[in-house]
Design a protein around this nucleic acid. Structure first.
Length: 414
DNA sequence: TTTCCACAGGAAGGTACGGTCT
DNA sequence: AGACCGTACCTTCCTGTGGAAA
């Protein structure tokens, strides 16, 4: 008979949620300069003047979003206190790769759920018309917070249109300011000249946290999250070290700490230890890879599969050409239409960008010329597991068959 | 110093798709 | 129904490139 029941377990955690990404702490640690600049840049808002456009630059997990939430909460409170009409519209631009899509999403964000517009079909100018109308209807001061705005890439016309909307007579009642948040430090340089001149932005750059700052951040959160003495002494420094390795990424460090806490809880440990952190680190890395691979389209996975079979034969590092040949074989085998070699080179570049494979440029000069070498950046078994769905569909290639048979932790079925 | 290999990867254009508007 | 819209995904074509060999 199964006897299973749930019971609350709060032996380690006091408040686990305070380690999550969307938790805004009471105070922000280690970002004093940035907060000061940001505060100054927001001053016109509270004066009821035309707001400045503000751009934040910095790698992931360096506090851009956290500081923004913290300051804008405060700003909204104070605006209320001084009877100012302030609207804050936030939009995460992840997955939106054009100004058009950003504009559509902004309109929908402002409009009521029953009044949404579709994401395609409208001409560009019409979308902007919708947007101007919605912004004017809001009136007062409107701050548009565009998180991860670098996703729009080259198509940056919205950043040109919004600052000019008022002088072009498209908007009469609202004072609109943009707050752009970018993970890509080069984004600013890549903006078109037209955009750069009309934005007149205040830019604030967020440097990576150093190990000390990272530790203060972790300590602050851990105080809220865990009971006293729930962490052994080396846990926070170790999380901070991993985070510092990852370009001063506080979010990674916090995820890691939570992962370690969860592991300790699952094991009924009375303390989180160094081991839990290391285990959690492996676990997170693996999860990230699995998710990355699962999101790939069929042909991208086939290219990866091709490289995987080459690796199983110890034929790596392999040239793009060799990968392409094996990929074509697999396509025939699986009755897929093969893409061209040019396209496969794009796929390989994508895989390298996702850190699934390592590609390096080689040059053998007059006898060999220039080419690229590719190899897996991860354990063969892990990658095969992550691709199991595709492999089951197209069949197991003979070169990995032995490997699969010799390996007891591959979940593939024939 | 010059030559030249073998690709890398940019540019441009085609096609199909899910949508709107009249 | 048919013109039109923006975009994802491909192909075709072609110029660029770094360094070993001559």
């Amino acid at each position: 008979m199964n006897e299973i029941s749930f019971q609350p377990d709060d032996s380690l955690y006091r408040n686990r949620d305070s380690l999550s990404e969307d938790y805004t702490p009471q105070t922000i640690v280690g970002r004093d300069d940035e907060i000061k600049q940001y505060h100054t840049a927001l001053q016109p808002v509270i004066n009821g003047e035309q707001p400045s456009n503000i751009f934040l630059y910095g790698k992931t997990g360096v506090g851009k979003t956290a500081v923004t939430n913290y300051l804008l909460n405060q700003l909204a409170d104070d605006a209320h206190r001084f009877d100012l009409d302030l609207s804050i519209i936030s939009l995460n631009c992840e997955g939106l790769n054009s100004s058009y899509q950003v504009a559509v999403n902004l309109v929908n964000r402002i409009r009521a759920p029953e009044d949404q517009i579709s994401k395609t079909g409208h001409p560009q100018y019409e979308i902007y018309e919708f947007l101007w109308r919605e912004l004017d209807a809001l009136g007062g001061t409107v701050l548009l917070v565009l998180d991860e705005v670098d996703n729009i890439g080259e198509s940056d016309s919205i950043l040109y249109q919004i600052p000019r909307a008022r002088s072009n007579g498209n908007i009469a009642d609202a004072k609109v300011g943009i707050i752009g948040i970018s993970n890509d430090l080069a984004f600013r340089e890549n903006l078109s000249a037209k955009v750069r001149s009309s934005l007149c932005e205040k830019s604030i750059s967020f440097p990576p946290y150093d190990a000390t700052e990272l530790r203060s951040v972790l300590e602050q959160r851990a105080d809220v999250a865990f009971h006293d003495n729930a962490l052994s002494t080396e846990v926070l420094p170790l999380c901070a070290a991993y985070g510092a390795q990852d370009a001063g990424d506080a979010r990674k460090a916090l995820d890691l700490l939570r992962g370690a806490g969860d592991l300790a809880r699952a094991n009924n440990a009375d303390m989180v230890t160094e081991d839990h952190v290391n285990q959690a680190q492996n676990e997170l890395e693996r999860e990230e890879l699995m998710d990355g691979i699962a999101d790939l389209a069929d042909h991208q996975q086939l290219v990866l599969y091709a490289l995987t079979t080459l690796e199983a034969e110890q034929e790596t590092p392999a040239r793009s050409q060799a990968v392409f040949e094996r990929y074509k074989e697999l396509c025939t085998f699986a009755a897929f239409d093969a893409r061209t070699s040019r396209r496969v080179r794009d796929f390989l570049a994508d895989l390298a960008k996702l850190s699934i494979i390592i590609s390096s440029q080689r040059n053998d000069g007059l006898s060999g010329g220039q080419y690229r070498d590719h190899e897996l950046d991860h354990n063969l078994t892990t990658i095969l597991n992550a691709m199991s769905e595709l492999i089951e569909r197209v069949g197991i290639h003979q070169t990995v068959r032995t490997h699969i048979q010799n390996s007891d932790n591959i979940v593939l079925s024939e």
